[in-house]
């Protein structure tokens, strides 16, 4: 039984418009459980819009999105159920600056999953160990470096024990010397079998960790390939163009 037999995310012919601008044009794909999918493409191609439709931060206007058997509609219970299975890490970290690191991580488990505080904090400390910054628990986000903040953001998302993790350009706002520490954490997550959807420009990471690379351009999926296939023998011209631009410097 290969990984592909257990699709946990099914996207069928999804369209989205912003006014007259057709942002997503018929996106269809499937993600299996435990698979790591890297989404890349030029800016404005719809990558971020796409993964934000999966946890309903944007609403898709046509097509179906089914996550772990739950269809994503306007039904609030469906939305809440889907959001509890998906964790998201943002480009701008979006940590809550008025709460400590520990409080950032325990907020949702306490208030959404109604866990007791002790249990939530235990889980939080375990996660902080996992992202390798347990000593920062009582500091405020403003006192941490960018790389540390993003790792806290990853821990915060993991605290809800999601089945799927979405990453929206997690390292694009970081100084170069801090990108490695975040990518290390993401590598470890991938190796542990978590289903991950990563929008990124970090091709080294993609080559090493991804099971599949999806190339977006102008609202459509232009190419889907294995990492080897994509980087050494891209099938389409647009992919070739993109790779030439990215890898030339």
């Amino acid at each position: 039984m290969t990984k592909r037999d257990n699709p946990i995310i099914i996207v069928r012919d999804v369209h989205k418009w912003y006014g007259d601008f057709h942002a997503l044009r018929g996106i269809s794909m499937e993600v299996s459980q435990g698979e790591v999918v890297v989404i890349c493409g030029p800016s404005g191609s719809g990558k971020s819009t796409f993964i934000r439709t999966i946890n309903r931060l944007e609403e898709h206007e046509r097509g179906d999105i089914i996550v772990d058997g739950i269809r994503l509609t306007n039904d609030v219970r469906n939305i809440a159920a889907i959001r509890s299975e998906i964790g998201m890490v943002f480009q701008q970290f979006n940590l809550f600056p008025h709460l400590t690191v520990l409080q950032n991580i325990t907020l949702a488990p306490i208030w959404v999953r109604k866990r007791p505080r002790r249990e939530a904090e235990k889980i939080a400390f375990e996660l902080l160990e996992r992202v390798k910054i347990p000593e920062q628990a009582h500091k405020y986000p403003g006192q941490l470096s960018g790389g540390q903040q993003q790792r806290v953001a990853i821990a915060r998302a993991l605290a809800m024990q999601p089945k799927i993790m979405l990453f929206d350009e997690p390292t694009s706002a970081l100084d170069p010397e801090m990108i490695k520490e975040v990518l290390d954490v993401m590598r470890e997550l991938a190796r542990s079998g978590l289903t991950m959807l990563v929008v990124t420009h970090e091709m080294g990471f993609a080559r090493e960790v991804a099971d599949r690379i999806v190339f977006f351009d102008r609202g459509e999926i232009v190419e889907e390939n294995t990492p080897d296939g994509f980087f050494h023998a891209p099938k389409t011209d647009r992919a070739k163009q993109f790779l030439a631009n990215i890898l030339s410097h």
Binding site: A80, R83, M88, F90, N94, L107, A108, W111
Partner: peptide, 19 residues
């Protein structure tokens, strides 16, 4: 991004506003 992060975590609108 603050409101988005709160929503992504699953906080209800009222919880997100209050906290």
């Amino acid at each position: 991004g603050q409101l988005e992060a709160a929503k992504a975590l699953g906080l209800s609108p009222m919880q997100a506003t209050l906290f």
